[in-house]
């Protein structure tokens, strides 16, 4: 098991390096640079040139790249070109907010999505099924910025239950949770719809199976048939889906974080893109890759645990 983990982590290194390198060159090919965005629209060419020198951007790209690799070897992600703070510190500062948001969204999706999917499959082509299918279609097609604004209007303005500025910097646990719910629901609703549809489809595949009929024939209660036999098998793919979706949701968190004014990786990456903060962009790519690889690894391990047919070697 330990060997498996170590091997997977080693395989992740080239992935992270490659993606960071792609970002390194892509960002520098884009028109515009950090000097321009630091100094603003009215800066003279002279001042911009001096700033480029200060940031080391006047060096040939290859020299910059070697410097970047050298820093990486020392596990140093560098300092933000805009704020001057260490990238690692900036990332660690906001990482918990993105993680809690994503985990909340995942939990929201699974806790509500699975029962809805099961219920829909059991009531196939009856009202609950139609409702769930219609609802999940809406959930899947509702863009987060629109849903976010709608939720804010309803639950922060008309019925003022939650804050509009969902920045959890008040320090109190209650404040932190209150600042998590609307963004979490906004982010989680697409996942919920996805989980509901996947579990419905999986259940429908399993329900006509022979062993389900056998279970019913030997006189098991419907509850035991559904939960003890059908669900156990049908819901295995949900584990994989959840793992895969974790990365997607972290990406989707960008829009949610902006609408709800939450700190987080998404906001960090958008800010870094707009201001051409190359160092921050490279660092964030590495962090994102690492998280995705890590989550996939955990998914595989969990899959091995819940499905005895799969062995982790």
């Amino acid at each position: 098991m330990l060997r498996f983990v170590a091997k997977r982590m080693m395989l992740a290194v080239p992935t992270m390096l490659l993606s960071a390198s792609v970002v390194f060159f892509l960002a520098r090919i884009l028109p515009g640079d950090p000097a321009l965005s630091i100094l603003g629209d009215s800066a003279s060419e002279e001042a911009i040139a001096a700033m480029r020198t200060r940031l080391g951007l006047d060096q040939p790209m290859l020299v910059q790249y070697l410097g970047f690799l050298g820093d990486l070897l020392r596990l140093d992600l560098g300092n933000s070109m805009i704020s001057g703070h260490a990238v690692t510190a900036e990332v660690l500062g906001v990482l918990p907010y993105t993680i809690e948001l994503t985990v909340f969204a995942i939990a929201f999706g699974v806790v509500l999505g699975v029962p809805i999917g099961i219920a829909a499959s059991l009531a196939r082509n009856r009202l609950p099924d139609y409702l769930s299918r219609f609802g999940s279609l809406i959930g899947l097609s509702c863009p987060p910025f629109f849903l976010g604004i709608c939720l804010l209007l309803v639950f922060a303005i008309w019925v003022p239950l939650f804050p509009v500025i969902s920045a959890p910097d008040t320090g109190t646990l209650g404040g932190r949770i209150a600042a998590l719910i609307l963004p979490g629901v906004t982010l989680g609703i697409i996942f919920l719809a996805f989980v509901a549809r996947s579990s419905r489809a999986a259940m429908l595949e399993v329900l006509p199976e022979q062993y389900i009929r056998t279970a019913r024939m030997k006189g098991l209660s419907e509850r035991a048939v559904v939960f003890g036999h059908a669900c156990r098998n049908a819901l295995l793919p949900i584990v994989t889906v959840t793992g895969l979706y974790f990365g997607i949701l972290m990406g989707n968190a960008v829009v949610t974080e902006i609408v709800f004014t939450r700190p987080g990786l998404g906001k960090l990456i958008i800010g870094a893109l707009n201001s051409r903060d190359y160092v921050m962009l490279q660092g964030l790519t590495i962090v994102y890759c690492f998280i995705v690889v890590l989550v996939n690894l955990v998914t595989d391990i969990v899959y091995g645990l819940v499905d005895p047919r799969v062995k982790v070697r």
Partner: peptide, 10 residues
């Protein structure tokens, strides 16, 4: 339980 007032701003 969390309530909005806890979570105004900094």
């Amino acid at each position: 339980h969390a309530g909005p007032s806890d979570a105004q701003t900094a």
